[in-house]
């Protein structure tokens, strides 16, 4: 018996997660209050809409990433998938496909990429880091090859209008986060596959010997991550009105950072849906606030790095001490 174990007995895990979620939420509110005092433009409808749009795409990526990280893996390819699928959907629209068909086909591409990751990990025995690193670089290459390095403009106004639209006063992009997060929450916390995700991340052999189809769960995690990423590709294409394979550079790191800030453990078996959501919007707020305060964008990167260290450090302290 050590201090760790005994303190852990004091409070059930679930309650701690909620507490941590509340702390993050408090941090987010604090940032908003501070920015409200420090700037005149933060609490304007325009800026808030902008902030929600900025955070939305990272948030969706981060949820998918969290599924993968819970199994003890990592998906480095999500940024590349976003860029690649933005090209794909632009092409489909250029060919004159109806929007629904372009969307469905693009999402199927995402599923295929996820299946390929699962195949590499389960069948070829490659570490997740390697297989997703490989697709990270090749997807960008394929995207550039298809377009010969050019940018494809989207002329379908109906498609691009979606990203600027509001519903009940809230940007449609943010509604997309909710549309992804609610089923994701149910899957992770109220379905048997969610339990299996945690079990696989905690001890794959024990899960297997308990009758869990471990390969299927791994496939599921990577397919969801790639599917969410291709969905973000659609949103990005709609928002900027172009398809370009070099878009979304470094978004995989944003997604991983959001997930980790949200309390996901890179060792697997610990994570939630609300965590990465809060993480993504905290990062978005910092970027947004820095812009408003006219802080050099180089500083934003440094601040983000420092924040990751501080938040994760305190998260670990909390886990250790209860």
């Amino acid at each position: 018996m050590t201090d760790v174990t005994n303190k852990a007995r004091g409070l059930p895990k679930g309650r701690l997660n909620i507490l941590f979620g509340l702390t993050l939420f408090a941090l987010l509110l604090l940032l908003w209050v501070i920015l409200g005092f420090a700037t005149n433009s933060f609490w304007t409808g325009n800026n808030i809409s902008n902030l929600l749009r900025q955070g939305s795409m990272t948030a969706i990526l981060a949820i998918g990433q969290t599924f993968v990280i819970i199994t003890g893996g990592i998906d480095l390819s999500v940024g590349a998938i976003v860029g690649f699928t933005s090209v794909i959907v632009s092409l489909f629209l250029q060919w004159g496909l109806p929007i629904w068909a372009a969307v469905v086909l693009t999402l199927l591409f995402g599923v295929a990429i996820g299946l390929f990751h699962g195949f590499g990990i389960v069948r070829m025995g490659l570490p997740p880091f390697i297989i997703t690193l490989a697709t990270l670089t090749s997807l960008r290459g394929i995207g550039l090859l298809i377009t010969n390095g050019a940018t494809i403009s989207i002329t379908n106004d109906e498609f691009t209008a979606f990203s600027r639209a509001n519903f009940l006063g809230v940007p449609s992009l943010f509604w997309m986060v909710i549309m992804v997060a609610v089923p994701a929450y149910i899957l992770l916390n109220h379905s048997r596959w969610g339990r299996y995700l945690f079990a696989v991340g905690s001890n794959a052999e024990a899960a297997r010997l308990s009758g869990v189809n471990v390969p299927r769960i791994i496939y599921m995690a990577y397919v969801l991550s790639a599917l969410f990423a291709s969905f973000v590709g659609l949103l990005l294409a709609a928002r900027i009105g172009i398809g370009n394979a070099t878009q979304a550079e470094g978004w995989e790191l944003q997604a991983i950072a959001s997930s980790v800030i949200g309390g996901t453990s890179l060792f697997g078996a610990i994570g939630s849906v609300h965590g990465p959501l809060l993480g993504a919007f905290i990062l978005a707020t910092i970027n947004n606030g820095a812009n408003l305060l006219n802080v050099n964008s180089f500083w934003q990167r440094i601040v983000t790095g420092v924040l990751i260290i501080v938040i994760v450090y305190f998260d670990q302290l909390r886990r250790r001490r209860g």
Binding site: P12, K13, F198, A199, S202, N203, E205, A206, A207, L209, A269, I270
Partner: peptide, 10 residues
Amino acid sequence: RDQGLCLNLP
């Protein structure tokens, strides 16, 4: 430890 339990789960 290796086969029976998911130690860091409830």
